[in-house]
Nucleic acid binder design. Structure first.
Lengths: 413, 413
DNA sequence: CCATTTTGTTAAATAACTTAACAAAGTCAG
DNA sequence: CTGACTTTGTTAAGTTATTTAACAAAATGG
């Protein structure tokens, strides 16, 4: 119904308000006169809106800029540290919380080992505790946490009034409405997304790529997941399943095979590859993300057979990436998960093979880069998701004034 | 730069103007009072905007509706036949022109055999002639053609100031800026798109599916192409290559194979399948689209070996569709090209196999339907593209008042 | 040092919407 | 059949956000 809503004068103010906030954020420091030039709006209007933002403390006047032949402009600065954002990551082996400022800069980092897939209740308890600690830390800095982003290693499942892990791959989470449970205990805006999509979002926002409209992020870990950015936004599909490339097939598959066999998750998943290499995963690499180094080591020190297995892995990954590129036609491909730890030699094999599977010149010259945030990728992406929503609709800032945290009351069963 | 433009009062009017036009179009017949309720706008505002549309002749008052306990409402009707739209299809074997009204209803249909891939200049000449004839026919009905949509069997290539066929797969079209050439001779708004995307658009708009946000259209003809609708809009990717699924790979591909071998185009393309079946394609089936019937016939009358080949074809197609579904996560899948002519038996084989490759329950219950517009699919989609643009930005209607057609002057080299 | 430029503000004008009031045209109970 | 009530569409006045025009403050520069 909202779609068919007519606009009135106050909607203009809302829209222009958000526009100026975005521009102030983007430019960090800018004058009213420049804002007027940038937007085509008149200086009186700019002044009126800027006054509101000054009142709210999101920007401040920091003195004068250089004259360009007349009166010197007053410089406005976006206050990156006005508030904090929480990014929560339900990883495979850890639950982590990042507190970031409004520029995606890490302020606090907390991480606790946890088997999220196996122990949902315990995981939620850990998340609550982390959140509580994060809010305490924020308070110590006299800052408020204005929003919470949550990353999960699963497509987002919309069950009833809540978002949660997908029961098809997280059966023990079935019936646990994660977003609802958290909402009952934290009264700030909450957003939830798949980890690969958040990884893509982090790359889009924090590595000089905000101008890219279409971006493909491939996370190779225990399986293969894609984060898809279309028109600068996460694309999740009709049921949150878009980009679940681990559940696609490459080989000459038999009709009677189960869809959990022989898919890209099993062909490309790092644990399967390490198992095939008979590499023991010891205490040295408790985090899946760090198992790329094991593969690198095996390749560098192994015999011909070992190298063949690695080559086969890279071959399949190259095919999967080429296929995904033709499907989504991105401007940039970023590979995350274990890939950044594979080392230059293996990476160059990958970079060399992909174009061999592409007919289109445009795609052959699409850059392939490594993700840069390691184990913090998802948490940072989760914080970024909150920031994105807030720069989009500034009213959320205003609503999120008073947060009551009642974490102590939490207990399941 | 336009992105950062601030809004002012006249933008509200523009937006509300378009909103009402869309609603009038959707409802076909509706009163001012209902429009006010639907949009949340006040009745005086509605009246003011409706008056403008009445002036332009896009709607008319057609009497009174039923009373709901008070004064009877004046009913407004969208005038579907106020203008005509041209949809031009550069097919593999034919060039066709559809004139449609503003409801996607066919008014004229012209089609001429042509080898577009081989003879670009001749094809353009044919298209010009068709367009000229179409405009003449429109004039005879005292109607104006207010926009031209063009469908091409190629990704759209943006070279310089023009859109054209992609030179990588249409080498003879290299350097021919199709949209520019046509723009020089027809002074109405022109839009161009890939045929699979237009097929998807036609399905979205004209078969009670306008509420679907994400839709996947798969055209199986000489190759495999996907039309992708995301959020109700065509998704073409960064270089117009999104959904070129014929250039992805399924089998256990060798690293040194060329990307033009062993891809889905060759595995699923109808001509290759018919060749494997040793079916002679005679005069009976000059159009690729109609070769589905040959496959059906072969399956129904053939020996075990023949049936196996058809089964293998369906198996591969099922895998390709399942993979595409996991990638794009649509609400609905529509198969076009030769598939609608394969008959119920083969279609049921396809419908039965796809869910076997899907883990996600949501995807297993996504409907698979056949496209319904046959050889007119692309031309209808092209006309639809124009309509979409115009309902989105009504100003295009106003600009397209005076069309000067100088088709006679056209000649290449 | 004075004319010119640039910036930011104040005051009046403009454009689109809203609300309030009203007339027209209908329903419905008694 | 009549009078109270409802619904629709219009007119007039009020609101909100914008714009333009005018101006003051502050800097440049010959």
């Amino acid at each position: 119904m909202k779609v068919f809503q007519g606009l009135d004068a106050s909607d203009i103010r809302l829209s222009n308000n958000n526009l100026l906030l975005r521009l102030l954020w983007q430019h960090q420091v800018i004058s009213r006169a420049d804002l007027a030039r940038l937007t085509g709006m008149s200086r009186p209007s700019i002044s009126a809106i800027v006054a509101e933002h000054l009142d709210l403390g999101l920007i401040s006047e920091i003195g004068h800029g250089e004259s360009s032949g007349g009166r010197r402009p007053v410089l406005l600065r976006f206050e990156d540290d006005a508030h904090l954002i929480a990014g929560l990551d339900f990883g495979a082996s850890h639950i982590s919380l990042m507190l970031s400022n409004l520029r995606g800069q890490e302020v606090e980092w907390l991480s606790v080992p946890a088997q999220t897939r196996e122990f949902p209740e315990q995981s939620i308890q850990i998340a609550m505790d982390l959140l509580k600690e994060g809010i305490t830390l924020a308070r110590r800095r006299s800052r408020k946490v204005i929003g919470l982003g949550i990353g999960v290693p699963s497509p987002i499942y919309s069950g009833g009034d809540s978002l949660s892990m997908h029961p098809a791959i997280h059966p023990k989470w079935a019936g646990l409405g994660l977003s609802r449970i958290l909402k009952e205990h934290v009264s700030i805006p909450i957003f939830m997304e798949n980890d690969a999509n958040l990884g893509a979002l982090a790359e889009l926002w924090w590595t000089e790529r905000q101008s890219r409209k279409h971006l493909l992020y491939l996370k190779v870990a225990s399986g293969l997941g894609a984060g898809i950015i279309i028109d600068g936004k996460i694309f999740a599909g009709a049921h949150g399943l878009a980009g679940e490339l681990g559940h696609t097939f490459l080989g000459d598959r038999k009709i009677d095979q189960s869809p959990t066999q022989d898919n890209l998750n099993s062909m490309i998943g790092i644990n399967n590859v390490l198992a095939e290499l008979k590499v023991k995963v010891g205490q040295r690499h408790p985090k899946i993300l760090h198992r790329g180094a094991l593969l690198k080591e095996a390749f560098e020190t192994g015999d011909a057979n070992t190298q063949d297995i690695v080559r086969k892995f890279i071959h399949r990954l190259a095919l999967a990436i080429a296929n995904a590129m033709v499907s989504f036609d991105p401007e940039l491909v970023i590979v995350g998960g274990v890939v950044p730890d594979l080392g230059e030699e293996i990476l160059n094999m990958l970079r060399a093979e992909i174009p061999r599977h592409l007919v289109w010149p445009e795609l052959r010259s699409v850059p392939l880069e490594c993700s840069r945030f390691g184990e913090k990728q998802t948490a940072l992406g989760a914080a970024t998701l909150v920031l994105e929503k807030m720069l989009e609709d500034f009213e959320l800032f205003c609503e999120a004034r008073e947060q009551r945290v009642r974490l102590k009351e939490f207990s399941l069963g």
